[in-house]
Design a protein around this nucleic acid. Structure first.
Length: 278
DNA sequence: GCCCAGGTATAAA
DNA sequence: TTTATACATGGG
Protein backbone atom coordinates (compact mmCIF):
# COMPACT_ATOMS: atom_id res chain seq x y z
CA UNK A 1 0.00 0.00 0.00
CA UNK A 2 1.38 3.38 -1.02
CA UNK A 3 0.67 6.78 0.48
CA UNK A 4 1.14 10.35 -0.63
CA UNK A 5 0.57 13.65 1.05
CA UNK A 6 -0.92 16.45 -1.00
CA UNK A 7 -2.79 19.73 -0.54
CA UNK A 8 -5.95 17.60 -0.21
CA UNK A 9 -4.62 15.63 2.73
CA UNK A 10 -3.30 12.10 3.13
CA UNK A 11 -3.95 9.77 0.21
CA UNK A 12 -3.90 5.98 0.18
CA UNK A 13 -3.32 4.49 -3.25
CA UNK A 14 -5.54 1.44 -3.56
CA UNK A 15 -8.16 -0.13 -5.79
CA UNK A 16 -10.17 -3.01 -4.37
CA UNK A 17 -8.27 -3.38 -1.10
CA UNK A 18 -10.28 -0.65 0.62
CA UNK A 19 -13.97 -0.02 0.02
CA UNK A 20 -15.32 2.70 2.28
CA UNK A 21 -18.97 1.65 2.26
CA UNK A 22 -18.28 -2.04 2.87
CA UNK A 23 -15.75 -1.21 5.59
CA UNK A 24 -17.89 1.34 7.45
CA UNK A 25 -21.26 -0.35 6.94
CA UNK A 26 -20.49 -4.02 7.57
CA UNK A 27 -21.52 -3.73 11.21
CA UNK A 28 -18.13 -3.34 12.88
CA UNK A 29 -18.42 0.34 13.85
CA UNK A 30 -21.12 2.87 14.72
CA UNK A 31 -19.56 6.32 14.40
CA UNK A 32 -19.02 6.72 10.65
CA UNK A 33 -21.74 8.34 8.57
CA UNK A 34 -22.10 8.91 4.86
CA UNK A 35 -22.74 12.52 3.84
CA UNK A 36 -24.64 13.91 0.83
CA UNK A 37 -21.52 14.04 -1.33
CA UNK A 38 -20.72 10.35 -0.73
CA UNK A 39 -17.82 10.94 1.65
CA UNK A 40 -17.75 9.46 5.16
CA UNK A 41 -17.33 11.44 8.38
CA UNK A 42 -16.23 10.03 11.69
CA UNK A 43 -14.29 10.67 14.88
CA UNK A 44 -11.39 8.51 16.04
CA UNK A 45 -9.19 9.16 19.05
CA UNK A 46 -10.74 12.61 19.38
CA UNK A 47 -9.93 13.55 15.78
CA UNK A 48 -12.65 14.37 13.28
CA UNK A 49 -12.05 13.09 9.77
CA UNK A 50 -13.70 13.30 6.39
CA UNK A 51 -12.71 10.62 3.91
CA UNK A 52 -13.65 9.82 0.32
CA UNK A 53 -12.53 7.92 -2.75
CA UNK A 54 -11.25 9.68 -5.86
CA UNK A 55 -10.13 7.24 -8.54
CA UNK A 56 -7.36 5.10 -7.13
CA UNK A 57 -7.00 7.29 -4.04
CA UNK A 58 -8.68 7.12 -0.68
CA UNK A 59 -8.37 10.71 0.52
CA UNK A 60 -8.32 11.60 4.23
CA UNK A 61 -9.19 15.25 3.96
CA UNK A 62 -6.78 17.79 5.49
CA UNK A 63 -4.83 15.03 7.21
CA UNK A 64 -1.13 15.75 7.85
CA UNK A 65 1.61 13.19 7.38
CA UNK A 66 2.22 13.10 11.11
CA UNK A 67 -1.45 12.52 11.92
CA UNK A 68 -1.67 9.84 9.26
CA UNK A 69 1.15 7.84 10.81
CA UNK A 70 -0.05 8.49 14.37
CA UNK A 71 -3.68 7.49 13.87
CA UNK A 72 -4.92 6.41 10.48
CA UNK A 73 -2.33 3.92 9.24
CA UNK A 74 -3.00 1.80 12.31
CA UNK A 75 -6.76 2.46 12.42
CA UNK A 76 -7.29 1.29 8.85
CA UNK A 77 -4.88 -1.65 9.34
CA UNK A 78 -2.91 -0.55 6.28
CA UNK A 79 0.07 -2.84 6.94
CA UNK A 80 -2.01 -5.98 6.42
CA UNK A 81 -2.31 -7.30 2.87
CA UNK A 82 -6.06 -7.83 2.62
CA UNK A 83 -5.98 -9.19 -0.93
CA UNK A 84 -3.65 -11.91 0.25
CA UNK A 85 -5.86 -12.62 3.27
CA UNK A 86 -8.93 -12.76 1.02
CA UNK A 87 -7.35 -15.33 -1.24
CA UNK A 88 -6.47 -17.44 1.82
CA UNK A 89 -10.08 -17.22 3.00
CA UNK A 90 -11.35 -18.04 -0.50
CA UNK A 91 -9.29 -21.23 -0.47
CA UNK A 92 -11.16 -22.57 2.55
CA UNK A 93 -14.44 -23.30 0.74
CA UNK A 94 -16.34 -22.45 -2.47
CA UNK A 95 -19.06 -20.72 -0.44
CA UNK A 96 -16.52 -18.49 1.25
CA UNK A 97 -14.84 -17.81 -2.08
CA UNK A 98 -18.14 -16.64 -3.50
CA UNK A 99 -18.79 -14.29 -0.57
CA UNK A 100 -15.26 -12.88 -0.66
CA UNK A 101 -15.32 -12.44 -4.44
CA UNK A 102 -18.64 -10.63 -4.44
CA UNK A 103 -17.74 -8.04 -1.79
CA UNK A 104 -14.96 -5.51 -2.20
CA UNK A 105 -12.47 -4.22 0.30
CA UNK A 106 -13.73 -4.83 3.84
CA UNK A 107 -10.99 -3.92 6.30
CA UNK A 108 -11.16 -4.66 10.03
CA UNK A 109 -10.75 -1.31 11.77
CA UNK A 110 -8.37 -1.02 14.69
CA UNK A 111 -10.82 0.60 17.07
CA UNK A 112 -10.06 1.67 20.61
CA UNK A 113 -10.84 -1.20 23.01
CA UNK A 114 -13.06 0.72 25.41
CA UNK A 115 -15.09 2.21 22.55
CA UNK A 116 -15.55 -1.21 20.97
CA UNK A 117 -16.52 -2.84 24.27
CA UNK A 118 -19.00 -0.10 25.11
CA UNK A 119 -20.48 0.00 21.59
CA UNK A 120 -21.09 -3.74 21.48
CA UNK A 121 -22.61 -3.77 24.97
CA UNK A 122 -25.08 -1.25 23.56
CA UNK A 123 -25.58 -3.41 20.46
CA UNK A 124 -27.16 -6.33 22.30
CA UNK A 125 -30.79 -7.04 21.35
CA UNK A 126 -30.76 -3.78 19.41
CA UNK A 127 -30.78 -2.54 15.83
CA UNK A 128 -28.01 -0.62 14.10
CA UNK A 129 -29.78 2.75 13.61
CA UNK A 130 -30.69 2.81 17.28
CA UNK A 131 -27.23 1.66 18.39
CA UNK A 132 -25.77 4.58 16.47
CA UNK A 133 -28.22 6.93 18.15
CA UNK A 134 -27.30 5.76 21.65
CA UNK A 135 -23.55 5.91 20.94
CA UNK A 136 -24.01 9.38 19.50
CA UNK A 137 -25.87 10.59 22.60
CA UNK A 138 -23.21 9.00 24.82
CA UNK A 139 -20.56 11.12 23.10
CA UNK A 140 -22.65 14.31 23.03
CA UNK A 141 -23.47 14.04 26.72
CA UNK A 142 -20.18 12.84 28.18
CA UNK A 143 -17.46 13.20 25.53
CA UNK A 144 -15.28 16.25 24.99
CA UNK A 145 -16.32 18.88 22.48
CA UNK A 146 -14.00 18.98 19.50
CA UNK A 147 -14.38 20.66 16.15
CA UNK A 148 -17.29 19.06 14.29
CA UNK A 149 -18.38 16.77 17.12
CA UNK A 150 -17.51 14.99 20.33
CA UNK A 151 -14.89 12.48 21.38
CA UNK A 152 -15.87 9.10 22.77
CA UNK A 153 -15.98 9.52 26.58
CA UNK A 154 -13.31 7.66 28.55
CA UNK A 155 -14.08 4.73 30.82
CA UNK A 156 -12.85 6.88 33.72
CA UNK A 157 -15.46 9.52 32.92
CA UNK A 158 -18.31 6.99 32.69
CA UNK A 159 -17.13 5.13 35.80
CA UNK A 160 -17.97 8.18 37.94
CA UNK A 161 -21.57 8.26 36.72
CA UNK A 162 -24.68 6.44 37.92
CA UNK A 163 -27.34 4.57 35.96
CA UNK A 164 -29.62 7.59 36.38
CA UNK A 165 -26.99 9.85 34.85
CA UNK A 166 -27.18 7.78 31.67
CA UNK A 167 -30.93 8.38 31.29
CA UNK A 168 -30.43 10.83 28.37
CA UNK A 169 -28.95 7.98 26.33
CA UNK A 170 -32.26 6.02 26.45
CA UNK A 171 -30.17 2.87 26.41
CA UNK A 172 -32.69 0.93 28.50
CA UNK A 173 -31.52 -2.09 30.46
CA UNK A 174 -28.00 -1.67 29.07
CA UNK A 175 -27.23 1.37 31.24
CA UNK A 176 -26.10 -0.70 34.21
CA UNK A 177 -23.93 -2.82 31.93
CA UNK A 178 -22.19 0.30 30.61
CA UNK A 179 -21.50 1.52 34.16
CA UNK A 180 -20.15 -1.86 35.27
CA UNK A 181 -17.89 -2.08 32.22
CA UNK A 182 -16.56 1.44 32.78
CA UNK A 183 -15.83 0.73 36.45
CA UNK A 184 -14.00 -2.51 35.71
CA UNK A 185 -11.94 -0.91 32.94
CA UNK A 186 -11.18 2.22 34.96
CA UNK A 187 -10.14 0.21 38.03
CA UNK A 188 -7.95 -2.07 35.95
CA UNK A 189 -9.79 -5.25 36.92
CA UNK A 190 -10.30 -5.63 33.17
CA UNK A 191 -7.02 -4.68 31.53
CA UNK A 192 -6.99 -4.40 27.74
CA UNK A 193 -3.21 -4.22 27.45
CA UNK A 194 -2.75 -7.52 29.24
CA UNK A 195 -5.52 -9.11 27.16
CA UNK A 196 -3.57 -8.22 24.01
CA UNK A 197 -1.02 -10.85 25.02
CA UNK A 198 -3.24 -13.57 26.47
CA UNK A 199 -4.97 -16.43 24.69
CA UNK A 200 -8.32 -15.67 23.11
CA UNK A 201 -9.99 -17.88 25.66
CA UNK A 202 -8.35 -16.09 28.57
CA UNK A 203 -9.29 -12.70 27.10
CA UNK A 204 -12.88 -13.77 26.62
CA UNK A 205 -13.01 -15.00 30.20
CA UNK A 206 -11.68 -11.71 31.60
CA UNK A 207 -14.09 -9.62 29.53
CA UNK A 208 -17.02 -11.79 30.61
CA UNK A 209 -16.51 -10.78 34.26
CA UNK A 210 -18.35 -7.62 33.20
CA UNK A 211 -22.12 -7.77 33.72
CA UNK A 212 -23.82 -7.71 30.33
CA UNK A 213 -20.79 -9.05 28.49
CA UNK A 214 -21.36 -12.55 27.18
CA UNK A 215 -19.55 -14.56 24.55
CA UNK A 216 -20.67 -12.43 21.62
CA UNK A 217 -19.75 -9.02 23.06
CA UNK A 218 -16.46 -10.40 24.37
CA UNK A 219 -15.58 -11.77 20.96
CA UNK A 220 -16.49 -8.46 19.28
CA UNK A 221 -14.27 -6.60 21.74
CA UNK A 222 -11.37 -8.93 20.97
CA UNK A 223 -11.83 -8.60 17.22
CA UNK A 224 -12.72 -4.93 16.80
CA UNK A 225 -11.16 -3.39 19.91
CA UNK A 226 -8.01 -5.46 20.33
CA UNK A 227 -7.63 -6.41 16.68
CA UNK A 228 -7.44 -10.10 17.45
CA UNK A 229 -8.22 -11.17 13.89
CA UNK A 230 -8.76 -14.80 14.91
CA UNK A 231 -11.75 -13.89 17.10
CA UNK A 232 -15.11 -15.05 15.77
CA UNK A 233 -18.29 -13.33 17.05
CA UNK A 234 -21.46 -15.35 16.45
CA UNK A 235 -24.81 -13.56 16.44
CA UNK A 236 -28.23 -14.62 15.15
CA UNK A 237 -27.32 -13.76 11.55
CA UNK A 238 -24.11 -15.73 11.73
CA UNK A 239 -26.00 -18.72 13.12
CA UNK A 240 -28.47 -18.55 10.25
CA UNK A 241 -25.70 -18.12 7.70
CA UNK A 242 -23.64 -20.97 9.18
CA UNK A 243 -26.60 -23.35 9.19
CA UNK A 244 -27.63 -22.59 5.60
CA UNK A 245 -25.23 -21.04 3.08
CA UNK A 246 -22.02 -21.89 4.90
CA UNK A 247 -22.87 -25.19 6.56
CA UNK A 248 -19.85 -26.87 4.99
CA UNK A 249 -17.32 -24.75 6.84
CA UNK A 250 -15.88 -25.59 10.23
CA UNK A 251 -15.60 -22.37 12.22
CA UNK A 252 -12.89 -23.88 14.40
CA UNK A 253 -10.75 -24.41 11.34
CA UNK A 254 -10.66 -20.89 9.93
CA UNK A 255 -7.20 -20.01 11.21
CA UNK A 256 -5.71 -16.68 12.17
CA UNK A 257 -8.05 -14.64 9.95
CA UNK A 258 -11.31 -16.20 11.15
CA UNK A 259 -12.59 -12.78 12.19
CA UNK A 260 -12.15 -11.38 8.69
CA UNK A 261 -13.89 -14.42 7.21
CA UNK A 262 -16.66 -13.83 9.73
CA UNK A 263 -17.03 -10.24 8.54
CA UNK A 264 -17.45 -11.36 4.95
CA UNK A 265 -19.98 -14.04 5.94
CA UNK A 266 -21.90 -11.57 8.09
CA UNK A 267 -21.97 -8.80 5.49
CA UNK A 268 -22.81 -11.21 2.68
CA UNK A 269 -25.80 -12.60 4.55
CA UNK A 270 -27.00 -9.09 5.41
CA UNK A 271 -26.82 -8.14 1.74
CA UNK A 272 -28.71 -11.31 0.73
CA UNK A 273 -31.16 -12.00 3.58
CA UNK A 274 -33.37 -14.21 1.38
CA UNK A 275 -30.51 -16.71 1.07
CA UNK A 276 -30.25 -17.37 4.81
CA UNK A 277 -33.87 -16.91 5.85
CA UNK A 278 -35.58 -19.79 4.01
C1' DG B 1 -50.35 -1.56 17.07
C1' DC B 2 -46.99 -5.22 16.00
C1' DC B 3 -42.63 -7.47 15.38
C1' DC B 4 -38.03 -7.43 16.16
C1' DA B 5 -33.18 -5.94 16.83
C1' DG B 6 -24.85 -7.98 15.62
C1' DG B 7 -27.55 -10.88 23.54
C1' DT B 8 -27.36 -11.71 28.30
C1' DA B 9 -28.99 -12.43 33.12
C1' DT B 10 -31.87 -15.08 35.62
C1' DA B 11 -34.92 -18.67 36.81
C1' DA B 12 -36.64 -23.05 36.02
C1' DA B 13 -36.48 -27.86 34.13
C1' DT C 1 -26.31 -28.62 31.82
C1' DT C 2 -29.83 -27.07 28.79
C1' DT C 3 -33.96 -24.28 27.78
C1' DA C 4 -37.34 -20.38 28.47
C1' DT C 5 -38.29 -15.63 29.42
C1' DA C 6 -37.72 -10.73 30.56
C1' DC C 7 -35.44 -6.83 29.36
C1' DA C 8 -36.05 -0.82 27.59
C1' DT C 9 -36.51 1.39 23.55
C1' DG C 10 -37.77 2.68 19.10
C1' DG C 11 -37.02 1.57 13.84
C1' DG C 12 -39.65 -0.30 10.08
Amino acid sequence: MEYKFTERGAEIITKNEFDLRNTFECGQCFRWNETDDGSYCGIVKGKYAQIYRDGDSIVIKNCTEQEFYEIWKDYFDLDNDYNKIRSEIADISPELKHAVDSIDGIRILNQEPWEALCSFIISQNNNIPRIKGIVSRLCENFGEKISNGYSFPSAETIAKLSVEDLAPLRSGFRARYIIDAAQKVASGSVDFESIRCTTLEQGRKELMTITGVGKKVAECTLLYGLHRLEAFPIDVWMQKALSTLFKEINIYNLGVYAGIAQQYIFHYSRLHPELVNN
